[in-house]
Design a protein around this nucleic acid. Structure first.
Lengths: 232, 232
DNA sequence: TAGCAGTGGAACAGAGCATTCCGTTCTGCT
DNA sequence: AGCAGAACGGAATGCTCTGTTCCACTGCTA
């Protein structure tokens, strides 16, 4: 075969190895989607979503718990990554907002918080969690010290914000992202100190709420029978 | 088994009928607590929490679904009740805020939204849901027309707020209530228009965030092993 | 071409759960 | 007093769901 068999990192390998590599990603992606929608989802749902059989999954992970743990740890690493990325941003407020937007967009909070309890955490995860908290604390501290956050606000209040954003959910993933962005903007307008442009002059163009507003009945999807749509 | 002592003094009747009446309430209370904590909780958990046997439960409700439906419908009625109660309030902003606080305190949103899908709704519930939406719309419209809500805000954005509040949760119920109040205050500072006292002058005493701020690690309870406490 | 990594999917074992059933207690009425 | 049965506790039942294993099969790879 003209193809050289090496461990090159290129994405599109062909043949058995290539398929295996592709399955690696497919399984992780599927697992993320499935378990974010329902942390108690059965493993078979992941396999089906990924378009693979059970053995493809169990070849990679000793058990369900290991998959969950991997997912959560990946989320934790992503969190750290994003937090480090915005440290370069000189504008303390912008740094915080961009960080929050990225965390919300990637649904990292659900990954790290809502999956917790479904597995026993490792030592390394504990270290990473502390590291993440430290980075987050520094980020908030910067904004706070610069007078850009209201003074009676605590670091963990930001945790509440993320919790709230993660709770916003509709069946469509992209729409969920939009609504979360909108909600985040609403909350940020509330946590902003006097130093932030637009604070106190709410309703003006500067900090207008982003995205299409929720349509009537859009949030009532849990009430709808399968196939039904629109208002309750 | 345990002697049924007739404590007719405190509440209700004595004897068989009295006990039955007390069980009615005990079962509903227990069901609310249990199913709010986990909508998929087993029926046996409700019985245990209520301190009754399975038959006491199944004597009252034909099946689990009926109990869930009852719970949800009660929540819906409570919603309507609270909405009607604040209609008398002349201050449009105060009416809205008080309404939201009551809904959040009673966890009515979880009751009506998170329990949906666990049962097939009745016709009457549909009517009540429409009535609730109508009342809520009127409430928001009042505040909006009076210029007390930011203009780019839609009625269903308030739904997002309630969703966010309901997402705030720690093991202790009372503490959960406090944190939700705090979160609600944060968000309200963000949705308030220029006409509201304190808007734009955040961080001052007027709209100071209520309740003790979340302590470090308080929100990480999902990570803790049983018995462990404190930070991660 | 032989061998085996990689796989799909059915089979299995067991956990969890809604619901039923049975024996018991003790009230309320005759 | 005495009886009928309302109300109950809790074990037993049968079923569904789900994590994991197993085995036959495919087609690269050496």
């Amino acid at each position: 075969m003209p193809k050289q068999t090496d461990d090159s990192g290129s994405a599109g390998l062909a043949g058995r190895r290539g398929r295996a590599a592709r399955n690696d990603a497919a399984i992780l992606d599927a697992a993320r989607e499935v378990f974010l929608a329902d942390p108690k989802a059965p493993v078979a749902a992941v396999a089906e979503r990924a378009g693979v059989g059970m053995s493809a999954l169990y070849r990679r992970y000793p058990g369900k718990e290991d998959l969950l743990r991997r997912l959560c740890h990946d989320g934790l690493r992503r969190w750290i990554e994003e937090a480090e990325a915005v440290e370069a941003e000189p504008d303390a407020w912008k740094a915080l907002v961009v960080f929050l937007e990225r965390i919300v967009d990637a649904d990292v909070h659900s990954l790290t918080v809502h999956l917790a309890g479904t597995f026993t955490p490792t030592e390394e995860m504990g270290r990473d969690a502390r590291r993440a908290a430290e980075l987050m604390g520094r980020l908030v501290e910067r904004a706070y010290a610069a007078g850009l956050l209201r003074r009676d606000l605590v670091v963990d209040d930001i945790g509440l914000v993320l919790e709230g954003c993660a709770a916003v959910r509709v069946p469509d993933a992209e729409r969920t992202r939009e609504l979360r962005r909108r909600f985040l903007a609403m909350v940020l307008a509330g946590v902003a100190g006097a130093g932030v442009a637009g604070a106190g002059v709410t309703g003006t163009g500067a900090d207008a709420l982003p995205g299409p507003a929720p349509e009537p009945g859009e949030l009532n999807w849990r009430w709808r029978r399968p196939g039904q749509s629109g208002r309750v």
